[in-house]
Design a protein around this nucleic acid. Structure first.
Lengths: 306, 306
DNA sequence: TTCCGCATGGAAAGCGCTTTCAACAGAAAC
DNA sequence: GTTTCTGTTGAAAGCGCTTTCCATGCGGAA
C-alpha cells in the first residue's frame, strides 16, 4: 500500500484527534529582515517537531490581524505565535482580548514575541536596556545631541525603545528634545526620510540612533547623499543587527538581537504549553552591543554645528 | 450565535468539500530578501482570495523538499507554489516527478516560479537575458575581464544565469575563463568569500557580476575591506534589486526583478488552474537594468592589474 | 377543486480518520 | 475440563461540516 502511494489525510486525523499540528505566525511584514530572521527560527523548530506554519502578514494593521486571528481559529490551529510588536490601540486591544480569551478557552496555545497586552507567555529581549546600551556608547563617545528615528507609535517594540532612549538621556543628565525624535516606519525609505528631517534640526545632532537597522541604513545613505560624512560628521547606530548591517558602509554599530533564537525559543515555549507544561510568563534573551565603524568620538565642527 | 462566538470548523468543511483553501509555498530560505519579496507577493494575493499559506523552507535540500511535499500532500493543500530554483540532481528529480504527478492526479494545482524540470505552469523572468543585460553594460564600459560569483550548481536559477554570463562573453568575443567563475551560495558571507578568491586571480578582473545582490553586497564589503576602491578599481554588479541594494555604498548596479510581482502572478496563476482554467505554460515577467554607482568605465591601472 | 411545479426544510449519508467497546480466541491457572 | 485473564481483532460511533434526497407546503394554473 505504501507502493501505491497512500497518504493519510491529515485533515481527517485532525478532525478526529482535535490536533491539527498547525501553528499560525503573525508577523508585521515577512519581508522585513527582522521578521524574516524570527520566522526562520520559528519554521525550523516547527518543522523539527512536525508542525506546519501558517504565515500571516498583518502589516501592523488591526483589521488584518483580527481577520487572520479569526481564520486561524476556524482552522483550529494548535497554537499562535504573535511575532509583531502588538498594536496598543485600546479599541483594538479590547477586541483582541475577546478573541484571544476565547481561543485560549478553546485550548489554543498562545505565545508572544515581545511585550503583549495580554497575560500570555512572552519571549523577548530587554528593549529598553538594549537602547540604553547603544545610548551609553554614544554618550561615552562624547555625543550630546542624539536624534532618535522612531517606529510607529502604538507598536510596543517601538514604544519600549523610545522609552529606553528617554531613560538613557535622563540618566546621563541630557535634556530630552522632542524635536529630535523623528518619525519612521521601520523601512529603509523611512530612515531616508527621517534623515532629511534631521538635517533641518538646528543645531544638527552629532549622532542618531534608529529604532531598527533598516531605518539606520536608510539614514546612512541619505546622509551621505547629502554630503555629510558618516561617522566623521554624524555617528549612526541601529538596533537588531540584521545580516546586512555589517556589510553597509560604514559597517553599522548596532545591538545584536538573537532574531533566529527568538523564533526558536518562541516556538519551543509554544510547544511546551501545548504539552501542558507550565511555562514562565516571560523569557528574556540576551542582547549585545556591536560596535562597528558608523560611530566615532564626537568632534565639534565649528561652522558646521552651531 | 454570532455573539456566542461560534466559528465554523474549516477542517470539517475542508473534509467535506475537498477544498482546504490552503496553499503550500516552497522557498529556499525565507530570510533571503529574494524569497522574502516573492513570499510577500504570494501571501498578499493568497489572503486577498481567502487562502492561507503554509511556509516551507527547504534550504535547497532535496530531502527536506520531499518531506515537505509529502506533508503538504497529507494536508491535501489545494495548491503548491515552488518558489525556489529547483534542484536539478537527477535522482531527486526522479523522486520528485513521482510525487508531483501523483499530486496532480489528485487534483492539486502546481505552479513553479522559475524554470522547472516538470511540465507545470511557470512564471519567470528571462534569467539569461537579465544577465546579458548587465554584462552588456559592463562590456560597454570597457571591461574585458569580468568575474562571476555563482550560486550553487544544480539550482536552475543559478545555472541559467551562468549560461547568460557565458553567452554574453561569447557574443562580445571575449574568452571564457573558468577561473573567473567563483563559487558562492547566495549569501552576503558567500560573496565576501568569493571576493577573497577573486583577489587571487591574476590579472585581477576589473569587474565582477554576482548571481544575486546579496553576493554582490558581500563582495563589495570585502573589496573595500581589502583596500580596493569600488568602483574606481573594480566595478561590481548584482541581480534582483533587493530593497537594500540602493542603500549600500556605492549603490549597487543591478537588474530589477519584480520579486513581489513574481509572487503575485504565481499565486494568480495557481488560482486560475484551481478554477479549472487553462493557463499558458509560461509567464514571463520583465526585468530592467538599473545602473547605479557601483559600475564605472574601465581605467587600466598600471602596476595594479597584471 | 385538483394537479403540477417550485420552494423550503429536515433528515441522512458521507468525507477519512481515531477511539471506544464488545466479542472472541488463546494461554495460563485451578 | 472449566474458569479466568490477557491480548487481538472488528465493528461502530463520532469529529463538524456539506450535500443529497425526500417530504411537506404553498401558490398558480387547469
Amino acid at each position: 500500500m505504501a507502493t501505491l502511494g497512500y497518504s493519510p489525510s491529515a485533515l481527517a486525523r485532525a478532525l478526529a484527534t482535535r490536533q491539527t499540528h498547525l501553528v499560525g505566525v503573525l508577523v508585521g511584514d515577512a519581508s522585513d529582515p527582522y521578521f524574516a530572521g524570527i520566522l526562520r527560527g520559528v519554521e525550523d523548530t516547527a518543522r523539527e517537531f512536525g508542525y506546519l506554519v501558517l504565515l500571516c502578514n498583518t502589516d501592523r494593521n488591526a483589521e488584518v490581524e483580527r481577520r487572520y486571528l479569526q481564520l486561524l481559529r476556524d482552522y483550529t490551529v494548535d497554537g499562535i505565535l504573535f511575532a509583531g510588536g502588538c498594536l496598543s490601540d485600546p479599541e483594538h486591544v479590547k477586541e483582541l482580548r475577546a478573541l484571544v480569551s476565547r481561543m485560549r478557552e478553546q485550548g489554543t496555545a498562545l505565545v508572544a514575541l515581545g511585550r503583549y497586552p495580554f497575560p500570555i507567555p512572552t519571549v523577548n529581549i530587554d528593549n529598553e536596556a538594549a537602547v540604553r546600551a547603544v545610548m551609553a556608547h554614544l554618550i561615552e563617545l562624547g555625543h550630546r545631541r542624539i536624534a532618535f528615528i522612531a517606529g510607529r507609535p502604538g507598536v510596543t517594540t517601538s514604544d519600549d525603545r523610545l522609552v529606553g532612549y528617554r531613560t538613557a538621556l535622563e540618566a546621563a543628565g541630557l535634556p530630552y528634545d522632542p524635536n529630535l525624535v523623528l518619525p519612521g516606519d521601520y523601512t529603509y525609505a523611512g530612515g531616508q526620510r527621517a534623515a532629511g528631517l534631521m538635517l533641518n534640526c538646528h543645531p544638527r545632532p552629532s549622532a542618531v540612533l534608529a529604532v531598527n537597522d533598516a531605518s539606520a541604513i536608510g539614514c546612512l545613505a541619505a546622509l551621505k547623499e547629502a554630503g555629510i560624512a558618516v561617522p566623521a560628521e554624524v555617528s549612526v547606530a541601529g538596533i537588531n543587527d540584521i545580516p546586512v548591517a555589517r556589510y553597509v558602509e560604514p559597517p553599522l554599530t548596532t545591538v545584536s538581537v538573537p532574531l533566529q533564537d527568538l523564533g526558536v525559543t518562541g516556538m519551543r515555549v509554544l510547544l511546551r504549553v501545548l504539552a501542558g507544561e507550565s511555562v514562565p510568563a516571560e523569557h528574556r534573551l540576551p542582547h549585545r552591543l556591536i560596535i562597528r565603524r558608523s560611530t566615532v568620538v564626537f568632534h565639534s565642527q565649528p561652522g558646521r554645528n552651531v
